[in-house]
């Protein structure tokens, strides 16, 4: 199920969620993320690594530093979830509509 995927698991950790929320406000380097949080740079690096592995964050080099941002593809999880939602709603509709038709036969 979607809710059990690594994205949700990655965000179960409060510090990691704080890192994620920091990036939701805009791209940032490890140092910039660490400035606003009561955790060390190496710890922030570790959290970013997990978030990246979960597909929630990506990074690129800007000169000598590495800049992290939210990965727009993470939003694909939302799409998958809605897709399931509508698939099931339409199934329910089909079952209902066809059952009425069967009654007429």
């Amino acid at each position: 199920m979607t809710y059990e995927n690594s994205a949700f698991a990655a965000l179960a950790d409060p510090t990691r969620r704080a890192v994620f929320e920091r990036l939701a406000r805009g791209p940032a380097s490890v140092g910039q993320v660490a400035e606003g949080l009561p955790v060390s740079r190496p710890a922030v690096s570790q959290h970013l690594k997990v978030l990246k592995a979960a597909g929630l964050v990506d990074d690129h080099a800007e000169g000598a530093r590495r800049v992290y941002r939210l990965d727009p593809r993470g939003i694909g999880a939302l799409r998958d979830w809605l897709d399931q939602h509508w698939a099931r709603a339409l199934d329910a509709f089909q079952t209902y509509a066809d059952s009425l038709e069967d009654d007429l036969e």
């Binding site: 939302l78 979830w81 939602h85 099931r88």
Partner: peptide, 30 residues
């Protein structure tokens, strides 16, 4: 659908808090 995620901050909140429970609810419902 991108409008659902337009606010990245909102998305962060959803991913962090609201989603798992609602997803479970919808799975149960379905």
């Amino acid at each position: 659908l991108e409008r659902l995620g337009d606010s990245a901050a909102l998305l962060a909140e959803q991913l962090g808090n609201g989603w798992p429970g609602r997803l479970r609810d919808f799975a149960d419902l379905a």
